[in-house]
Design a protein around this nucleic acid. Sequence first.
DNA 1: CCGCAATTCTTACACCGTAAGGCTTGACGG
DNA 2: CCGTCAAGCCTTACGGTGTAAGAATTGCGG
Lengths: 220, 220
Amino acid sequence: MARAAALTKSKESLSRERIELAALELIEAEGLAAFSTRKLAARLGYEAMSIYHYFPSKGHLMDALIDHVIGELPPFPDASLPWLGRVRSLGRDVRRAFTRRPNLFVFVATHRMNTPRALAFLNRSIALFEEKLPHELAVRVFRSVSYYVMGASLDETAGYARGPSTVEPVSEETMQRDYPSVAAAEKFFKPAEFDETFELGWELMLTGIAALARRFEEQR
Amino acid sequence: MARAAALTKSKESLSRERIELAALELIEAEGLAAFSTRKLAARLGYEAMSIYHYFPSKGHLMDALIDHVIGELPPFPDASLPWLGRVRSLGRDVRRAFTRRPNLFVFVATHRMNTPRALAFLNRSIALFEEKLPHELAVRVFRSVSYYVMGASLDETAGYARGPSTVEPVSEETMQRDYPSVAAAEKFFKPAEFDETFELGWELMLTGIAALARRFEEQR
DNA sequence: CCGCAATTCTTACACCGTAAGGCTTGACGG
DNA sequence: CCGTCAAGCCTTACGGTGTAAGAATTGCGG
């Protein structure tokens, strides 16, 4: 059983909370690839192995970080709102919360999220779709919707608009000559355009979802 | 300048091609995390550093693998097909090609794809949308569409249905009690259901796209 | 057969996650 | 005040990683 940690005057002792927060900072400051338990401990003023007193492995720490991000999601859309509006908000909220920690998100997107908090959120989300759609359809639509939201978030945090890849990018002239549509499109690939593009596609999906829901409304 | 490689009787010499193929095999056989230049070289019967005569860094090799996967995409949908049908096929083709190498795909999804081949594919895709939509809208719709396709592919290759994460999963009882909607949904989260779920969401998007395109058809 | 360039290997370094176990410190019962 | 004990933290070590630097090998053209 964990006793209350002693507070020396010089520095606060380690804790799961402090480790997580430092990890989140470090990842956004230096990038996911550069993140290591040694650097994390150094930033906290401890040795690497001290981390392992609070997390059995780096994997467990990363899972905690995922959980932390899930916890940063805003409250579930208010039940008094119309159904489609709640779906709309949910998608926006998730994207906003996830893209706020871009470096961590590429990890989040490529790992299972089955911590209790994540499951609770999953559960509420699926239940939302079940309000207006038969079970199987609700599940599938939820999943499609999450494909879009996760795909968008990932592209914004790791995709074409981000820093250079390993190979040196093609020259501007080559771009203009060989890939004119891409060259012309690049303007709309910039971060400043993320919101508008996301919203467009999101409404595309919502329109389809609304039509689907209406069908089951009628036949009641 | 690369001279023609000599063929000894005992074993074929190294080449970019052979290295790439072995890398693709190894990644799918052992997983992305376990993939290393040393193991790759060992599999080929060489020492690790020999790889570096053909690729200046592991990053360059990985970029070549991305390019390889892009090259495995089926031919672009036939121009004689109706427009929406071509869009439909394009999405399906991309998902199918990408999910065929699940372990590699989580790398692909989290890295820029700006090799010539990838740019050429990007270019044709954007051009396809420009056939029926004004420039800006074409770009944004293309991007939305790729959000969905990439999100779906990623979830199928790295998401909830895949192997265990670090923390031990919650028990079946807890699942039933605390997350009933998730428990009931899990059946539709299995790989056998991937196709159907993808198609549903894909048609959702296509419906919206068709409506959009129709609007610009009329006002001509 | 010689020379030379293409190819491959050797060695080394800094960094990683983490297993095993030792040291330090502070709280508590006597 | 002192001995005990566990929690918290550190030391050391191991096997793995990518790759820089340069030596050794190989095989072909002259």
